[in-house]
Amino acid sequence: MLVVALVQIMVKPGEAVTCGQVDASLASCISYLTAGGSPSAVCCDGLKNLKTITPPTADRRAACDCVKAAAARYPNIKEDAASSLPTKCGVQMNIPISRSTNCAK
């Protein structure tokens, strides 16, 4: 919860989302994304925060690019775990979590 609160404080209205904010939101999900199982509550809170800070389409596209860049840094991320994360957390995302997503669409 502390990470989510800090990230929300960092987001200022009218400013575009940054990769740092996206990374902070999803950092607690790395163990789930690489090992599978069930995502932690902190991971799901981070995902909820990511949805909150990316309402405009431009921010969703930027966040999508950040997610793809982060996935490239972690080659052992399981694609099936990434794609199922929103469902497992009960969060309807407008940002696909996948290396192969075309963020321009």
Rank of each mutant, 00 (worst) to 15 (best):
V91A: 04
C103L: 03
P86W: 03
V7T: 11
T57I: 11
A104K: 13
A27Y: 08
V11R: 08
A35M: 14
A24V: 05
C64W: 03
R99W: 03
G14H: 00
L26W: 02
K12I: 10
A35Y: 14
T101S: 06
A35I: 14
S38D: 15
A82N: 04
C89L: 02
A35V: 15
V7D: 04
D65T: 07
R61Q: 14
A62L: 12
A71M: 13
K48Y: 05
A72F: 10
V67T: 05
A72R: 11
R60Y: 07
V42K: 12
N94I: 13
A82H: 02
V17R: 00
A58I: 08
I9A: 14
E15M: 02
C19R: 00
T101M: 01
A24T: 09
A27K: 15
E15N: 04
I9P: 07
G20E: 04
K88N: 10
Y32Q: 02
D23H: 08
I95L: 10
A58C: 04
N102G: 01
V91D: 07
L33M: 12
G36T: 09
C29Q: 02
K68W: 00
C43A: 02
P56S: 01
K78D: 12
L6C: 15
L85Y: 03
S40G: 06
A63L: 03
L47C: 06
A58N: 10
S84M: 07
S40I: 08
S100F: 10
Q8V: 13
L47F: 08
N49Q: 13
A62I: 08
S84P: 05
I77N: 05
G36Y: 00
S40T: 11
L47P: 09
S38V: 15
E79F: 07
V22S: 00
C103M: 01
A81P: 07
I53V: 01
E79N: 04
A58M: 08
L85K: 00
T87N: 12
P96H: 08
T34E: 11
A82R: 07
Y32W: 02
C44I: 04
T101A: 11
A63N: 07
S98M: 01
Q92K: 14
I77E: 10
N102E: 06
A24F: 03
S98W: 02
A72H: 09
A41H: 14
G46K: 09
S100Q: 09
T54Y: 10
A16P: 05
A70H: 13
A70V: 09
A27N: 13
V3W: 15
K78R: 15
P75M: 09
T54W: 07
S31M: 10
K51P: 05
V91H: 08
G37T: 09
C64T: 03
V22T: 01
V42C: 09
A81C: 11
A82C: 06
V3N: 15
S98F: 04
G90W: 06
T101C: 00
R61P: 08
L33P: 04
A81V: 04
V42E: 13
A24H: 03
I53W: 02
K68M: 06
A41Y: 11
I97G: 00
A35T: 15
G37N: 07
S38I: 15
I77K: 05
N49F: 10
P86Y: 02
A104Q: 11
K78M: 10
D80R: 08
